[in-house]
């Protein structure tokens, strides 16, 4: 593969980097990244990965754009309200960078469809907003040996970690979803829009550094920040031998869906 004159100019600020160069940019152009959730986290992640020239970007989201999304989901514009999020996001990505092939999945991930969706991708970004989906993505990625970036945000807080086969997984740290109602959703608790941008952008950087094979990924550590006081900290984590999915005696050997109260989901687009 040879970079065209236009690509050399478009990606010049990447190519200049010692850790990227032409060879690294070509890796990016050949990479396939799946973004599950085209909302607060997925929107910035998708824009940065598209700008970077990630060859194939998959977008999974069954929702339509709501006016209340626009405060943070920067890939969607006012005129996109009521459109499918994946269609709105695809249009922006294609306008930003014609080098990117966009594949859309206008659906929610569940135990039956997730394996087929993640199969063709090199790296997966969890940009979902609910625990059942987060545990499902973790389980599917562990069972199918797929690297992924976990991300979660609420109010002014964000947390993220990266899983590579063999490193600590989400369940090593968080054994199972919290009881229903124990953790409020973004629609109940609120979220500073810029916090979504901060975390989604970290996730995009993880994907790019994984593709490049450079630097130290957020594996075996959980990055936590609070944007109200702008404090960052890291918690070292390690693979848990008692982990129900990647431990020594795994009890989860196939995918299951946790129940998500319907009212939670409904309230977000009918509120």
């Amino acid at each position: 593969m040879n970079l065209t004159e236009e690509q050399i100019e478009r990606y010049s600020r990447h190519i200049i980097l010692k850790d990227v160069g032409g060879a690294g940019q070509e890796k990016i152009l050949q990479a396939k990244v799946l973004i599950i959730g085209t909302g607060g986290l997925g929107a910035p992640a998708a824009l940065y990965l598209a700008a970077a020239g990630v060859g194939t970007i998959g977008l999974v989201d069954g929702d339509t754009v709501d006016l209340s999304n626009l405060q943070r989901q920067v890939i969607h514009f006012t005129a996109d309200v009521k459109r499918l999020k994946v269609d709105s996001a695809r249009e922006k990505i294609e306008a930003l960078n014609p080098d990117v092939k966009v594949v859309t999945y206008p659906e929610r991930v569940h135990a039956e469809n997730i394996a087929a969706i993640i199969k063709d991708y090199d790296f997966i970004i969890d940009g979902t907003d609910n625990f059942p989906a987060k545990f499902l993505i973790n389980d599917a990625c562990v069972l199918h040996s797929k690297p992924f970036s976990h991300g979660g945000i609420l109010r002014f807080d964000g947390q993220t970690m990266t899983y590579l086969p063999g490193s600590a997984c989400y369940r090593c740290v968080f054994n199972s979803p919290p009881p229903k109602g124990a953790v409020p959703t973004c629609s109940e608790a609120g979220i500073l829009g810029a916090v979504a941008g901060m975390l989604g952008t970290i996730q995009a950087a993880e994907a790019l550094r994984y593709i490049l094979g450079k630097g130290k990924l957020l594996t075996n550590r959980l990055l936590i920040f609070n944007a109200l006081d702008m404090e960052y900290r890291q918690v070292n984590i390690r693979q848990n031998p008692e982990c129900p999915i990647c431990g020594e005696r795994p009890i989860i050997t196939k995918l299951v869906d946790y129940e998500q109260p319907v009212c939670d989901l409904r309230s977000r687009y009918h509120a």
Partner: peptide, 13 residues
């Protein structure tokens, strides 16, 4: 600049 450096770098690769 910086395209001249970018092109030099690509040639060196």
């Amino acid at each position: 600049c910086p395209l001249n450096f970018v092109k030099t770098k690509l040639a060196l690769e």
